[in-house]
Structures are given as C-alpha cells and as structure tokens.
Amino acid sequence: MNYLKYTQYVYLIFGAYFIYDGFTKVNEPALGNPWLSFMIAGLAVFMFFFRRKFAKKFEDRNKNF
C-alpha cells in the first residue's frame, strides 16, 4: 500500500499535460476547443488535493490503532 502515496502525483502530471494541451489549442484554433482540456486539468488538480487529503486522513487513522 506504500505505492498509494506516490500515485497522487500522477494527477499532477495529467493536469500539467492538459494545461499544456489547452494552451496549444488556444494558440492554434484549428486544433479544437481548449476549454475541455482546461476542465480536465482542473479536475486532475482537484483530484490531487482530494487524494492527498484522503491519504493523510487514512494514515492518521492507522496511527491511532
């Protein structure tokens, strides 16, 4: 279960990728709509903080037992 501590950072990597993808779509309008990429990036960053809080809560619960 030690790997769960590191999987939360995958969300940051996905967030950074979709922010990059959104900015490339803003600069080149023929590529498509950039707002979907920005929404997915926002969701990925939210999931990073959610998973980090959940992991800390889970770790504190195990310390009490």
Score class of each variant (00 low, 15 high):
N2W: 12
N2Q: 13
Y3R: 14
L4C: 11
L4M: 14
K5R: 11
Y6G: 05
T7K: 10
Q8P: 02
V10K: 02
V10M: 06
Y11N: 13
L12Y: 04
L12D: 02
I13M: 06
F14C: 14
G15F: 05
G15C: 12
A16Q: 02
F18T: 03
F18E: 05
I19Y: 09
I19G: 02
I19S: 08
Y20K: 07
D21A: 08
D21T: 05
F23K: 05
F23R: 04
F23S: 01
T24F: 00
T24A: 03
T24P: 00
K25E: 01
K25F: 01
V26T: 13
P29Q: 02
A30M: 12
A30S: 13
A30V: 08
L31K: 00
G32L: 00
G32W: 02
N33W: 05
W35S: 04
W35N: 11
L36H: 05
L36Q: 09
L36G: 08
S37P: 01
F38Q: 01
M39Y: 10
M39D: 06
I40E: 03
A41I: 04
A41G: 08
A41F: 03
G42Q: 03
G42M: 07
L43T: 07
A44M: 15
A44G: 04
F46E: 04
M47H: 03
F50H: 13
F50A: 14
K53H: 08
F54G: 07
F54Y: 15
A55N: 12
A55K: 05
A55Y: 13
K56E: 15
K57M: 10
D60I: 05
R61G: 07
R61Q: 15
N62V: 14
K63R: 15
K63N: 10
K63Y: 05
N64Y: 10
F65A: 10
